[in-house]
Amino acid sequence: MSLLDAAHQQLRGPIVLVWDNLNTHISAAMRQMIAARDWLHVIRLPAYAPDLNPTEQVWSHLKRSIGNLAVRGVDHLLAIIRNRLKRIQYRPDLLDSFLTHTGLTLKPNST
């Protein structure tokens, strides 16, 4: 939670967090920590929902970009993956498309 607290301090705004059902994400302690932060909106994914997880789109895009590469070893592959992820980081249009593909929005429901 300290990472989210630090992000909130730096961004100075609400955070929308999309989480799967990892046991630590759904624990009673985590629910209490979430409830104590009115600036944090958590969207929980169903048990198995890769189509709703924007991260799946990131990995799919990355795998397509390295599919036909010949690498010299694990270190070379790691360097290429880091480079490609860094490129994605600076393409907000691409990042937006990953979220758009899920049909989710960053705006919490106002109900």
Score class of each variant (00 low, 15 high):
Y90W: 13
R31D: 00
T55V: 15
Y48E: 13
H61Q: 05
L3T: 12
P50V: 01
W39F: 05
L52I: 04
R37V: 06
G103H: 12
L106G: 15
A36C: 13
L99T: 10
D93P: 00
A79R: 05
L62Q: 01
H25G: 04
D96C: 07
L69C: 04
K86H: 11
I81N: 04
W19Y: 13
I43E: 05
N68H: 11
A28L: 09
T111E: 12
D96W: 12
T111K: 13
D96G: 05
R37T: 07
D51W: 01
H25M: 06
L78R: 15
P50F: 04
L40P: 12
R12G: 11
S60E: 09
S27T: 11
A36L: 12
S60I: 06
T102M: 00
V16F: 15
A79F: 10
L40G: 09
T100V: 08
T55E: 15
N68G: 13
S60H: 10
L4D: 01
A70I: 12
V71R: 09
D75L: 11
A7K: 06
T55D: 15
L69W: 11
K107Q: 14
L17C: 08
L11W: 15
G73L: 02
T24H: 09
G67Q: 12
N21Y: 01
A79I: 01
R82L: 07
D51L: 07
M1K: 03
G67C: 10
L17W: 13
L17E: 05
S60V: 03
I26W: 07
A49Y: 14
A35M: 00
K86Q: 11
N83Y: 03
G73M: 01
T55N: 15
P14S: 14
V74E: 09
R72W: 07
Q10C: 11
H101R: 14
S65H: 06
Q32N: 00
H41V: 09
N83A: 08
D5W: 02
M33V: 00
S65I: 06
R87T: 09
W19Q: 07
N68A: 14
K63Y: 06
S27I: 06
H41K: 05
L40D: 07
R31A: 10
T111R: 13
L11M: 11
R84A: 09
K86M: 08
Q57H: 14
L40I: 07
R12F: 11
G103E: 13
H76F: 03
L4W: 04
L62Y: 02
V42G: 02
L4V: 12
P46K: 14
I66L: 10
L85E: 01
I81Q: 08
R72Y: 00
L11R: 12
L104P: 08
I34H: 04
Y90L: 02
R44E: 10
P14K: 14
A29N: 11
L3G: 04
D96M: 14
L104S: 03
L69D: 03
R82C: 03
A49F: 14
L52F: 02
L95G: 03
N23C: 11
H41A: 05
Y90D: 02
V74I: 10
I81R: 06
L78E: 13
L94S: 04
P46G: 13
L78M: 11
V18G: 09
S97H: 12
L77Q: 06
A49K: 10
L99P: 03
L52A: 08
T111W: 15
I80Q: 06
H61Y: 15
A28T: 03
D5F: 02
K63R: 08
H25Q: 07
A29Y: 07
I66N: 10
